[in-house]
């Protein structure tokens, strides 16, 4: 489906807050991702990245505020949102006793695909991600790189206009990581809106059109990688990130002073 069908803002967080008892995991989060844009969500462990992405994927309900995919609200139309997203969890989420082909067919059917269309899509994906040599092996026997390729293919089986990737390169070697980079670039060029979380600053510089930095559940800075590097006065993204999240001891990072930019 053409991404422009859904309007200009493919992904939108609107003042989203998520609390667990006294803990405010995400607080007042607002940002947008356009079709054909890659948005990297950065932050130290416990900053609220996974919680924010889970809220977007309708796995968790926001305490207040909301998020949208296209014009579908995560609280009001969760099934519509799910049909529009491809979600890649940090844990990959493969069924060990199913083969990659069976897994892709299973998720295809959950997305209401069936018959020759599903078979064609599964064949396309197994070819595109180099899964064919191990397509009929149980997922439990695959290497980390092979499993991640299957996992990405699984997220794409229904060809969603928006992709949510939670640490997609975690635990991968350089070669397997490269496959994921190429995939993200290809999907961006295909007009998909992509939001991903990561701790790898090199892949942020390589892939991200814009970056949002979360600290203590709040968006403390936002902009292109170049603008964040420039605004912090650091040499690279890794340094800029440290400057943004490391404060002077009172919990406030340098990014506190850097207001999120309006998305371009």
């Amino acid at each position: 489906m053409c991404p422009s069908t859904y309007g200009a803002h493919m992904i939108e967080f609107q003042d989203l807050t998520k609390t667990y008892g006294p803990l405010r995991a995400v607080e007042g989060l607002s940002f947008r991702v356009e079709a054909g844009e890659v948005y990297a969500l950065l932050g130290p462990n416990g900053a609220g990245k996974t919680t924010a992405l889970r809220c977007l994927a309708t796995l968790q309900a926001p305490t207040s505020g909301t998020a949208r995919v296209g014009d579908a609200d995560v609280c009001e139309q969760p099934l519509v949102v799910r049909a529009r997203i491809g979600f890649l969890a940090a844990s990959m989420g493969l069924y060990e006793r199913l083969t990659p082909v069976e897994l892709l067919q299973y998720f295809g059917r959950l997305h209401r695909m069936d018959g020759p269309d599903l078979d064609r899509r599964v064949a396309e994906l197994t070819h595109a991600f180099g899964i064919t040599p191990f397509a009929n092996q149980p997922c439990g026997t695959l290497s980390t790189g092979q499993a991640q390729r299957v996992s990405v293919a699984r997220a794409l089986v229904h060809d969603p206009p928006a992709l949510i990737l939670d640490e997609p390169t975690m635990g991968l070697d350089v070669l397997s990581g490269e496959v994921i980079y190429r995939f993200i670039e290809a999907e961006r060029n295909g007009g998909k809106a992509i939001v991903f979380s990561t701790h790898q600053m090199t892949e942020v510089e390589l892939l991200a059109d814009r970056v949002g930095v979360l600290n203590g559940g709040r968006l403390v800075a936002e902009g292109t990688p170049a603008s964040l590097i420039g605004r912090t006065g650091e040499r690279n993204m890794a340094r800029a990130f440290l400057a943004l999240v490391q404060g002077d001891g009172d919990g406030k990072g340098k990014g506190e002073a850097l207001a999120p930019e309006e998305p371009g």
């Binding site: 049909a83 989420g93 959950l110 997305h111």
Partner: peptide, 14 residues
């Protein structure tokens, strides 16, 4: 435990 439930629940299924 295997993390598949999270993936399953993002499918458009009640």
């Amino acid at each position: 435990e295997r993390g598949t439930l999270e993936t399953l629940l993002t499918a458009p299924v009640p």
